[in-house]
Design a protein around this nucleic acid. Structure first.
Lengths: 109, 109
DNA sequence: CTCTTAAATCAATTATAATTGATGAACTAA
DNA sequence: TTAGTTCATCAATTATAATTGATTTAAGAG
């Protein structure tokens, strides 16, 4: 039985849109820095991130939201505090072992 | 001997800038489509790509340049023709095995 | 040389993303 | 209640990226 090769593969198109969003989230050095800090620090609240990353709160919130919406980080709210951490499962699914290393502790030696 | 932990790690900063560029190149579904076609087709010239990807020549050239500058694809010129192909080594260094699969033949079944 | 084709580049427009300071919502403590 | 804190969101601006059609460069063919 012959398999039809469609001109436009809608499954792939969906995939490309999904990965476009994730790569967009990764395509910013400030967000890569945030990810690097989260991998070093583990779960961290926004108020502690502010002095480390050195950016105003609204800006940090903006970038955290982009990473969150792409499922690259996870948020957990405890009372007034919001704790963010890397979604390691997701990151490992996207990035190479080599690249994942800059997002894992013990690399910045 | 104690190791100093710098507030700003310039080595990491350079890395982040490098990866920012690569992720930016990947962060577009049209470019992911181009990459997918190049993995299926192998080395392909621009004039053959135009009808496959269905975009005007100047637009295609623009997107190919972004992928080329990020070292994600390789260009080889033969006379009037320019042939492009995936830089597999680079792609494998960045992306997970799982994700590399959408950029390898035999996946679109 | 001229004519054609291939592909890159340009300039102008349009679209998308990032930054900023201010405001608002939700929780805690007094 | 009131005041203080954490964080998200808003609106306005600025910056960056994508799209378009036209032009340009370069390589063959005749």
């Amino acid at each position: 039985m012959l398999k039809e090769i469609p001109l436009i593969d809608h499954g792939l198109e969906k995939s490309f849109e999904k990965y476009e969003k994730k790569f967009k989230a990764l395509a910013d050095k400030k967000r890569l820095q945030i990810m690097n800090i989260l991998t070093k620090q583990g779960s961290t609240c926004v108020c502690d991130l502010i002095p480390i990353v050195g950016m105003p709160q609204s800006k940090l919130s903006y970038h955290l939201k982009i990473l969150l919406d792409a499922n690259i980080i996870i948020k957990e709210t405890k009372g007034t505090w919001s704790y963010y951490e890397i979604n390691m499962e997701e990151v490992n699914h996207i990035l190479s072992e080599e690249l994942c290393c800059i997002l894992k502790p013990g690399n910045s030696k």
